[in-house]
């Protein structure tokens, strides 16, 4: 499998302030990766390094070429975090302006049609709504027909329908073979589209893998039930991490819900009104961020 991105031993500091420390990862061609981390974790800096926007310490290759190669820029499309709100410029003019820099530019009218915003073609950028502007900014990343696409918070400011449409389109692009790296705060949305996840924490990669692997490693199940069992009996159940009394209910957390459930099954006649809930991705992420920083 061709590697779209290979990153080896990347470290980066702004002055004396370290931002990224010894980053290593690889992305296969055609993969879609979610890059997440708290504000200030180094996501934007990492994206800039991957786009040759900052001098790099370490090695980055894009489709087996050093990121500094000029032709690499021709393969990359990037959607910035901010919106391209230029006064006095129409949607079509902006996209046409950016497309002239690429050797294989997209047909702008076709691009607008495919994205259902032909009607905005002659509208000035400073007269668009936030969601419309975000959509145009997204299209600005596609004008060079990229093989590798960076999307920084693509759905910020969009309503639910527009977000759905955009994710669908992003998925279609991946199916067409485009490699995509997305940063987003909407983790549940990322789960629906991304193949793998990279979590940045204080300049380190604290997790890389699939969503299923993340959940296997970190998910906690929460059991709530009424029972005559004692606290010490409950604590002896496999994978149980904590037991708390809440009125007439027991609250029990487990890092392996299946194991605990099987064991609890032995006491079914003593367990009533049982509910089991699993942590959401956002809960896991939030918990990871509040754990001690990796050394």
């Amino acid at each position: 499998m061709t590697k779209a991105v290979q990153v080896q031993n990347i470290s980066f500091s702004y002055g004396k302030q370290p931002v990224l420390k010894d980053i290593n990862f690889a992305i296969d061609a055609g993969e879609m990766i979610g890059l997440i981390g708290e504000n200030g974790a180094g996501k934007t800096t990492l994206l800039k390094l991957l786009q040759d926007q900052l001098p790099v310490g370490g090695q980055i290759s894009i489709f087996d070429h050093p990121v500094q190669d000029k032709q690499v820029h021709d393969w990359i499309g990037a959607m910035p975090q901010g919106d391209l709100k230029l006064p006095g410029v129409t949607v079509r003019e902006l996209l046409a302006n950016l497309s002239t820099s690429y050797s294989n530019p997209a047909d702008i009218d076709q691009l607008l049609r495919d994205n259902g915003i032909s009607a905005l073609s002659k509208k000035r950028l400073d007269r668009l709504s936030g969601g419309q502007l975000r959509r145009v900014t997204f299209l600005s990343a596609l004008v060079g027909q990229p093989r590798l696409l960076f999307l920084n918070e693509p759905t910020v400011g969009m309503d639910v329908n527009a977000r759905k449409k955009l994710w669908m389109q992003i998925k279609q692009m991946q199916q067409a073979g485009v490699t995509i790296i997305i940063t987003s705060h909407y983790l549940e949305e990322l789960q629906d589209v991304a193949d793998r996840l990279l979590i940045l924490q204080s300049g380190h990669i604290s997790f890389k893998g699939t969503f299923a692997e993340l959940q296997d490693q970190h998910v906690q199940a929460l059991f709530r039930f009424m029972s005559s069992l004692s606290e010490s009996q409950l604590l002896q159940l496999p994978a149980v991490q904590s037991v708390t009394r809440l009125g007439s209910y027991w609250l029990l957390t487990s890092n392996n819900g299946d194991q605990t459930m099987n064991a609890l099954g032995q006491y079914l006649n003593q367990v009533h009104e049982l509910t089991v809930t699993k942590q959401s991705l956002s809960d896991i992420f939030s918990e990871m961020m509040h754990q001690e920083e990796p050394k």
Partner: peptide, 12 residues
């Protein structure tokens, strides 16, 4: 507005 950043990402 990010326009300079976007331009700097292009081959030109």
């Amino acid at each position: 507005s990010g326009y300079l950043t976007r331009l700097s990402q292009t081959p030109v």
